[in-house]
């Protein structure tokens, strides 16, 4: 059976059962969070854009932020039969595409996104099995709910599976 991968857009998230594949294209400073329950084979992918919803004036879209996005992704996966205590994580992205001379802290948003995602996962007691973050290049990621493998594609640094 071939199934079209489910596309997850920027500031969006989706949960899906096996054998579906979740894909998000062109991650720059955004962070892709992939969660997986190895027993029920329910997977989820969130394309996180900003670190912290409490710093923001618009929180209609929970998938946009690390804190609210991770929580919502877990909820969506539990609805499909995943058990929170079994979830494991793989994360990718958090690059810095543009390098402004004398860039302030505010500009290092990739790094801040990565830190925020890790903190949220730690709070939820979800172990990070693989991480491919940082650098100054974009990533496209494909997450298999069948085996929990994450394919990471780049233009200048090749492909890898984690």
């Amino acid at each position: 059976m071939t199934t079209e991968p489910i596309k997850v857009g920027m500031a969006d998230l989706r949960a899906a059962p096996a054998p579906l594949t979740l894909i998000t294209t062109g991650l720059g400073s955004c962070v892709g969070v992939c969660l997986w329950d190895p027993i029920t084979k329910v997977g989820g992918l969130a394309h996180i854009m900003l670190p912290d919803s409490t710093q923001s004036r618009s929180i209609q879209n929970k998938a946009k932020y690390a804190d609210t996005g991770v929580t919502l992704l877990i909820e969506e996966m539990v609805k499909l039969g995943a058990q929170k205590g079994r979830l494991v994580a793989k994360i990718a992205g958090g690059a810095q595409m543009f390098n402004f001379p004398g860039a302030s802290n505010v500009m290092r948003i990739g790094e801040r996104n990565t830190e925020a995602v890790k903190k949220c996962l730690e709070q939820e007691k979800i172990k990070i099995l693989a991480e491919d973050t940082g650098g100054n290049f974009g990533r496209t990621i494909e997450f298999s709910t069948t085996n929990g493998q994450l394919l990471i594609k780049t233009i200048s640094k090749g492909e890898k599976v984690v």
């Binding site: 920027m10 062109g26 720059g28 400073s29 974009g138």
Partner: peptide, 14 residues
């Protein structure tokens, strides 16, 4: 930056 359009625009949209 020379890379994927999405990665570049994403950073601007942030």
């Amino acid at each position: 930056a020379i890379d994927m359009a999405g990665a570049i625009l994403g950073e601007v949209l942030q």
